[in-house]
Nucleic acid binder design. Structure first.
Lengths: 133, 133
DNA sequence: TCTTGACTTGGAGTCGACTCCAAGTGATAC
DNA sequence: GTATCACTTGGAGTCGACTCCAAGTCAAGA
């Protein structure tokens, strides 16, 4: 699969895909005879994993570190697990924070809706007054 | 309340508080006779609101826009409500995305735990072998 | 054969959101 | 009264994460 197709399939620009490879976030991608990137199954799985983790805001640096450990095989499982636990906890607490904000936004929206209803009512009263009955 | 106290109370650097004021995110803060910021009740409520919204990732630009409308009074309630609804929906969908990642992290952590248990078991078997019974 | 177009590289530029800095002022502590 | 310290300003610098660019290579089509 060529870089453009990967880019379209995952919604990641080819610039970003190359950037990820350059900084070592994704190990060197498989190439064809002409030296052009030809993503294989494993490459795609990595792209998809990174996309998922990045979409939740996990820092690139942490992911570089994690992916490096994956490359080193089973002896790094313990430290990989620790990284994931740390990031999971951070993610969970960010989500709690966001939930608070979400609740607050919903509350404010409700308040505004009430205010708008009240306004409308007043308008109707004015109309009735102007109708003169 | 002086800028340093506000900074400590809300965990926002005084540089950031001044920055927020400069870009119009927070309307000019009350000053004492010597021209030094002296946050009053209303100023503090605004700081707290901004802190909450920023902690969930609402963009500064959107908040500047919203705060500007608040300053213009009741005639802007409709557009303010629309902004909040848009941001609420964006926030909710970001949280859904994050939930997927959270689930995936939890799953991977479990897999790693199993792998570690298996490893440990093998170690014990090796020990038993070396004990020679 | 020449052009088109997708790819390659390394490096520079951008963006959002701060964060730091230098130079200056004014009030409190010794 | 002078030293210290928090404050003031405008502007420059930083950081993370891309995003864009120029110059070059290569394969396929008119």
């Amino acid at each position: 699969m060529k870089i453009m197709e990967v880019s379209e399939q995952y919604g990641i620009s080819s610039d970003t895909l190359r950037y990820y490879e350059r900084i070592g976030l994704i190990p060197p991608v498989h190439r064809n005879e002409s030296g052009i990137r030809d993503y294989n199954e494993l490459d795609l799985r990595r792209v998809e994993f990174i996309k998922c983790m990045r979409s939740a805001g996990l820092p690139v640096e942490v992911l570089i570190n994690y992916m490096g450990l994956v490359q080193q095989g089973d002896k790094t499982i313990e430290s990989r697990k620790e990284i994931l636990i740390e990031q999971r906890d951070l993610l969970a607490s960010r989500m709690e924070e966001m939930q608070k904000t979400l609740d607050r936004l919903n509350y404010k929206i409700k308040v505004y809706e009430k205010a708008l209803l009240k306004k409308e009512k007043e308008m109707i009263q004015v109309e009735e007054l102007m109708a003169g009955d």
